[in-house]
Design a protein around this nucleic acid. Structure first.
Lengths: 225, 225
DNA sequence: TCCGTCATGATAGTTTTACTATCATAATTG
DNA sequence: CAATTATGATAGTAAAACTATCATGACGGA
């Protein structure tokens, strides 16, 4: 089995974590630790302890834990886009491509053997629970200028082009896609923690099926003429 | 002019900040300071300095800054619900009521003279920029059990009942409302900071008009039979 | 094989945050 | 007038979020 590597924007890190043993360990275990502790209680000191390295060494890879979170988010969205590209190969009908994309976005994430070091299930939980913290900061504009959100933007843009192709008159393709990408995670979060804000059931398999149906309904009705 | 007071869940605070001069000053200036610094850089120490009080005194009102943020959010959503109630008085047609609600949600917030101490414009910016931090924590479930999110839930539920009345067969009224409430803020945030993720224009007056149109289109199409 | 560089580890130190505790004092209330 | 209670003043602690310095060991080239 081939091992793939997603190309990441160099502004996300100080030293490329995919290049070295320690770097890969930082990625691998930071996912597990953030999933376990939550982003606020997660510290580089605790991570250092877990991987039997030092705080200083981790700081050589990432400026701070915020950048690490942005990196993980970026990796996640690039991974989702890659999976959509993979699954829409040779699908000629745009509406079909859109449906596949929505399916991948809404479905339960499982281990991808192409990326053995990454626990995609844990990463999915992190992105669901913490992703807003990656851009809801006073430094958004600087981070954006450095291109830290290109992974997400790229995915958003790709799906928006499907929509434009299906209905060129629809005025809000980008807004609709970014709304739906967010809604997908938000509704799963609500299903688990604030059930009265959703109509999804707590059971996760079921919730994912409802998620897919909900997104499809919103999107296809919105872009219908 | 009457001065109103919104009834808040006592679990949100240690001592009721609406009851005392100092408490009201904490609310008033914390809004200004969080707006200015962002939630991460905001501390009780800095707030104490600003209002010429002490850290210890502020801790007597709020357990920590997280609870204060939850309080401000809760106040905001209760305020929005009150404005919707006010504006839908004597409107018999449900679709009209829904449209009014969407208008209030999406429109630019301005000073409400009924609540002289609260800078609603600044609070609106805070909720747009920071609100997800109020529930994206490892303590969501405890906070939820204490009823800290009842303000938001109540608003969500109210609008969902409009939708059920308009189309009782629609399967996702709560999901649609919570999606749209979030989208409203998110799209305005994107318009300012990540414009490629939205189709709204940067200009805020214009963005609010597009916001309203976008929300209306999504909602009314989604619930159409 | 020797030299240089470079990644990592070990250690220590700083500032700030997020509290907690104690005591004095001033205002209010019964 | 006594008792309570809100606030202020001050101090202190543990942890977080870094920064700096130096030693070591691996590795790659000459």
């Amino acid at each position: 089995m081939t091992t793939l590597r997603l190309l990441m924007n160099p502004n996300l890190f100080l030293r490329d974590p995919q290049e070295t043993e320690l770097g890969r360990k930082i990625l691998e275990d930071s996912i597990l630790l953030i999933d376990e502790l939550g982003f606020e209680k997660f510290t580089f000191k605790k991570l250092a302890l877990k991987i039997e390295s030092t705080e200083a060494s981790i700081y050589r890879y990432f400026e701070n834990k915020h950048k690490l979170l942005v990196y993980l988010n970026s990796w996640y969205w690039s991974w989702v886009e890659y999976r959509i590209d993979f699954s829409t190969q040779n699908i000629l009908n745009v509406a079909d491509r859109l449906e596949i994309a929505l399916k991948i976005i809404s479905e339960k994430k499982v281990k991808d053997p192409f990326f053995p070091q990454i626990d995609e299930e844990a990463l999915d939980r992190i992105v669901i629970a913490e992703s807003d913290k990656a851009y809801q900061t006073k430094q958004v504009d600087e981070d954006n200028k450095e291109g830290l959100f290109l992974g997400y933007k790229s995915l958003c843009h790709k799906i928006a082009t499907y929509i434009v192709e299906i209905n060129p008159e629809f005025k809000y393709p980008n807004s609709l896609v970014s709304t739906v990408l967010q809604a997908s995670h938000q509704q799963l979060f609500y299903a688990q923690h604030l059930p009265s804000l959703t109509d999804f059931t707590g059971d996760s398999t079921c919730a994912n099926a409802q998620n897919k149906e909900f997104l499809k309904e919103i999107v296809f009705k919105a872009i219908s003429k």
